[in-house]
Design a protein around this nucleic acid. Structure first.
Lengths: 229, 229
DNA sequence: GGTTGTTTGCGTCAATATAACGTGAAGTAA
DNA sequence: TTACTTCACGTTATATTGACGCAAACAACC
């Protein structure tokens, strides 16, 4: 009996949409390719699945070797099958997105890349492959996800103020949310725990510092986006 | 340069969770395998992705040759990467789920299967591979999806009564929903259009027949599931 | 032809959730 | 002390929801 891998199979790549939040800006990590195809173009970090790897293994390897980071929030996004998505041949891509706190990592351009840089998600350059498409799916997923699930804290420091969380939501959702109603929902849902400490050194009143409530019963809140009209 | 497909790559399979609704029962289509592995076991219909196929091409081929059906609602579910999921070797599975109206198709067991049968989703036999896992993900997705998106009509005839739609929701969500509140939400959302016709031949009052409103602005309604307590 | 039992379609109402906005305390800078 | 800003907590009008009531429509029966 012929072994499966002796048949012709499409290649299987993992592409990562790595989100980071800093200075009130949601960014995505892009990598400038050193080699064809799309040499000198910006693309999402990615890599091929090795025979013995799980998807998460591949994600970790990419994060580790290309970006020098580990232990981050990862979620599978979607699998992309456009036959023309890679000029080298048939490559299926499994998209994942990651949420990281840029403060915790020093980004390193691996040997494969000219450069690695954070880009504001609203000001992306042209991307190689079908990566614009993958990116859009990831951003849409993130926007939907934070409405119902407490993932915002993945992008913040361990201690944060309600205002900081509020600004993060406004930034990701790209809209304004009433400050006072937002606060009430987050507090009522027990999304966060008051540490009693305050953020010092600010110009005005010192806000209280919170940490994420890890024992949150899930789906406990819902943020509503104002209807555009 | 070595071509991609000359490297060792995992195989790529598509597995389908085909939902059907009939006699107030939500069912899933299973196939009894004629060959090893899992000979004589029930599994989801599936097949390997061919080099030139898109995922949807493969889905169509499976639906056509194994089940004799076409033109159905299909949505990508998730991709499954457990290294042990197929005893023959490394096989990645991309899961899709389909919603079909069993009344519209005559199911045929293709040459590869001993038998093809509908199973009540609450009374499944043991499944081969990791198909129980894939099935659970599909059922969960369906349960979440119908709360916000008008997909219920995919499982019904073109003309249906509000009561029939209501029973479908209760069946899928496996809970009870207040009949009158359900009706109000569905009508307010303009999910359906009154045809003016009535379903004849029933024992009691003849209910009005509706058809799905194809021009529905999406995400216009939300069905709430009673909190279990 | 009236009675009975069931389903259907429409309403009511109290409880809850939401959106919009007010206000005074806490803090820095002058 | 004053001016200015942010923070924390309220208030109120409106909208939505959940839990029911009820009468018309229909078949079956006496």
């Amino acid at each position: 009996m012929k072994l499966f891998h002796e048949y012709r199979n499409p290649s299987l790549a993992i592409d990562l949409v790595v989100f980071g939040y800093h200075d009130n800006t949601l960014s995505v990590l892009l990598l400038n390719r050193k080699e064809e195809p799309f040499k000198d173009c910006w693309t999402l970090p990615g890599g091929f699945l090795q025979m013995e790897e799980t998807f998460l293994d591949t994600c970790s390897r990419i994060l580790q070797t290309k970006l020098g980071m580990n232990e981050v929030f990862l979620e599978q996004l979607y699998s992309f099958d456009d036959p023309g998505r890679d000029p080298r041949g048939r490559v299926i891509a499994v998209g994942y997105y990651a949420l990281i706190n840029p403060a915790k990592f020093k980004i390193v351009a691996g040997s494969m890349a000219n450069d690695v840089k954070w880009f504001n998600v609203r000001k992306l350059p042209v991307l190689g492959f079908d990566h614009k498409h993958i990116f859009k799916a990831a951003l849409q997923r993130l926007k939907s996800k934070i409405l119902y699930h407490p993932v915002g804290f993945e992008l913040l420091d361990e201690l944060f103020t309600i205002t900081e969380l509020h600004e993060l939501y406004e930034c990701i959702l790209h809209t304004t949310l009433d400050r006072r109603n937002f606060r009430r929902k987050i507090l009522d849902a027990e999304y966060v725990i008051n540490t009693g400490m305050k953020r010092e050194g600010l110009k005005n009143r010192h806000p209280e510092l919170y940490r994420f409530n890890k024992h949150l019963k899930k789906n406990n809140f819902q943020i509503n986006v104002p209807t555009e009209s």
